[in-house]
């Protein structure tokens, strides 16, 4: 067994420097690497490029890094629900690259799988297609999109083992699996870390080969963005 564990979040983030490109898992606030984000805030690194579907809310998730002006550029598909983000974007302080969600996922997956580029119909005929190679397949127009290049990927899983194997829960899975192994160094934080051998190999979602460092997060707030319920009557 190859041991992928690191003792602390400090060790997990070793090598993160200002100016780097980071992938950050999660959809809204669900499945975000809370402990790694808190540590990024603490280290004070700046000029980051963040690849993440959303940008958190004003006081949680990537919103915490935005508040400290640590992010230079965001690559996302949807950035509503964050006033500070909107302010920085409209004032020009923050560079923003908005791309279709499926393209965002596939550009991660392509990086993970060693595929340099791929064609997709998403964005054809829109401003997303500007400057991109176009090609028809079976009569339908597509645009060429490239795999991402990132220095670190920060992901969050439900359970993991010391070999770096990961299991996700519910819709907290989202972008996390496709970011594993899509950057030079993948850091996985888990709610529960167990010794190798305790997880059923049949149930593993992401094999440890895609994960460089793994640690158990100290605290998970798991904030709910839109609490919607129905009455029992």
């Amino acid at each position: 067994m190859i041991n992928r564990t690191v003792a602390s979040v400090e060790e997990a983030l070793q090598g993160v420097k200002s100016g780097m490109t980071l992938m950050v898992g999660g959809f809204g606030l669900s499945g975000i690497p809370e402990n790694s984000i808190a540590q990024l805030v603490k280290t004070g690194v700046t000029d980051l490029t963040c690849i993440s579907n959303n940008a958190g809310v004003d006081d949680f998730g990537l919103g915490l890094l935005l508040k400290g002006k640590q992010i230079k550029k965001m690559i996302s598909s949807y950035v509503g629900e964050n006033d500070e983000f909107e302010r920085q974007m409209l004032s020009g302080e923050l560079e923003v690259d908005l791309i279709p969600q499926g393209t965002l996922a596939e550009r991660c997956r392509a990086a993970q799988a060693g595929i340099p580029a791929f064609y997709t119909p998403a964005g054809y005929g829109t401003e997303v297609a500007a400057g991109k190679e176009e090609r028809k397949f079976n009569g339908k127009p597509h645009i060429l999109e490239h795999a991402f290049k990132a220095d670190f990927a920060f992901v969050k899983a439900w359970k993991g083992d010391t070999a770096g194997n990961l299991i996700f829960k519910g819709t907290a899975r989202n972008f996390n699996p496709v970011m594993c192994g899509a950057a030079t160094i993948t850091v996985a934080e888990v709610e529960e870390l167990v010794p190798a051998g305790e997880l059923d190999p049949n149930q593993i979602h992401i094999p440890g080969i895609f994960v460089k460092r793994i640690f158990q997060g100290a605290l998970y707030e798991k904030r709910i963005e839109q609490r919607t319920v129905r009455s029992r009557t």
Binding site: S76, S77, Y78, V79, G80, E86, M89, L90, V96, L98, I99, P100, Q101, G102, T103, T120, P121, A122, G123, Y124, T126, V128
Partner: peptide, 12 residues
Amino acid sequence: VKGMGGAMDLVA
């Protein structure tokens, strides 16, 4: 400017 989310993939 909130972004397209998954809409561009869906409509394409």
